[in-house]
Amino acid sequence: MSSASKAASGPEYELQAVIRRLRTLLTSRDYASAASLLTQGKAHLLRLNALLPSSNTPRAHLILAREVLEAGALTSLHLRDMDAFVRYVQQLQGFYVLPESVLPRQGDNASKITGLYMLLLLSRGDYAAFHTVLETLEVGGDDRPGRVEDDKFIQYPVRLEQALMEGSYDRVWGETKGNRVPAEEFSIFSEVLVNTIRLEIASCSEQAYPSVPISNAKNLFFLESEGQVVEFAKERGWTVRDGRIYFPHQEQEGLASEKDILTTSKQVIENTLGYTRELETIV
């Protein structure tokens, strides 16, 4: 009997060893070796048939699988491998929807992973997917009440999205600073987000200001030095003259309206012809 149980627990035992090593690697921030260890872990999971939860997967295996996948998600984030991260998140969803009686919530990182996933969506500008996730959380598809309001991991992307939509970019800038993020993984996205808002601000400024002094632009675009401002202005195709940045929007507007007339006349002719045809058929 003992030999039978030992044989059954063979891959499980190895998996536990893998997880222990994973933990130490993660604390020592050796993500590259963690990634290679993860491949082993997943192979063990496959042997246990626990890579995807099914109704007859034992609870112990579920817990192990969840830990491996969560570690995988965080590792791929640190390695900046976003596609792998998304894959892990999608695999984890199957575990997160399991009821408390099958897989206890304790010790999982569901909120953190979901929060990070939402942040990823936000940094990619995929607002539709962001709101779809948020709606699922709000309706409480996974039996966790009050999750959106009280969870700091979920609140963070929600706050950011609100600020982004409103246009309070300085709040986004504030939130992305090191000490404001809820966990260190969240700051991985800060760079992307700051870039996003910088581009947003740039396109807003083109419309809103006739010109801006370079010294002010430094704060406006959250750049480090005036040299960077000049470089940024060149990238956008702005003219820098006498210490000021001039936005070339007026000329463009003129061009646009001229083009407008051309397309409009075609439209008008098309519409009128359409009316005539309809009149013909009805009357």
Binding site: G167, D170, C204
Partner: peptide
């Protein structure tokens, strides 16, 4: 703050 207001106004214009 005013900074927020400036960004918000700029976005509204855009």
């Amino acid at each position: 703050n005013e900074e927020s207001a400036e960004y918000i106004v700029a976005k509204a214009i855009r």
